[in-house]
Amino acid sequence: MAQSYSLFLGCIMPNRYPAIESTTRFVLDKLGIEIKEMERAGCCPAPGVFRSFNKPDWMVAAARNLAIAEANGADLLTVCNGCFGTLFEVNHALKNDEELKKDVNARLADLGYHVEANQEVKHIAQVLGFDIGPYGIRDYLKRKVRLRGAIHYGCHFLRPFHLKQIDDPEDPTILEDYFEALGVELIDYRRKHACCGAGGGVRAGHIEVSLEMLGEKMAAITEVGAEAILDICPFCHLQFDTGQKSLNEKFGTNFNVPVIHISQLTAFAMGLDDIGLEYQTIAPDFKLEAVEL
């Protein structure tokens, strides 16, 4: 049986960076993975803001999304670190706590849902980087890319480590191995594994602090001469893309580094020319350079 996933859209991907959605669909289709739509799904809800306001309500809303994926009969796939953080954590909590599951289901019943927590929650970077892997992906590539790239992992893909257990959060290699297989020349930079500054409701509540954190990263990325930032999360994507513009306006800096999501770069290497960079705020005229195999 062909592999299938319930694709969880979330908020920022469909509503700000639809090109990430279209390239994700393109990549999954090329890999022969069937997508099951998650009708009626909503916000994950975001682990920074909504979990902070009311954790029990946050769990119920997340469990509702999990229930929609379960009704599809296919594991849930997210494309975003934030959604991954929320849905993975709630799924894990429900799996390991029968009492909690009973309480959550009691509240879900009023909304017309029931959750079993018998499925997995996966991140696209896990599917590409581990399940397919840097060797497996070669079979699907039409071309490689010539690019000096700076990787940004984001926080909730690897942390907290004792829950996620995907890769060492202090010195991971999963994305390095994968992007290298696509032809990217990787460059390290200072504070590579630091937060982009968007999470935790800081971007919403304290934009100046959020931009200062971003500015430090951007200075380091510019210093090493990266041609693009490679990320795996639409929220980091938004922070890098619109944040550079805000930094330039506020502090007179001159940051201009395009940001590319793992789905976009993979789609390009699989032969898709239009990966939607022209819709982005920063460097809309940036063109990826292909290397024939």
């Binding site: 953080g85 942390r159 800081v202």
Partner: peptide, 10 residues
């Protein structure tokens, strides 16, 4: 409210 929930301290 200044925590970005990056989980490094954790």
């Amino acid at each position: 409210w200044l925590c970005t929930t990056c989980y490094q301290c954790y």
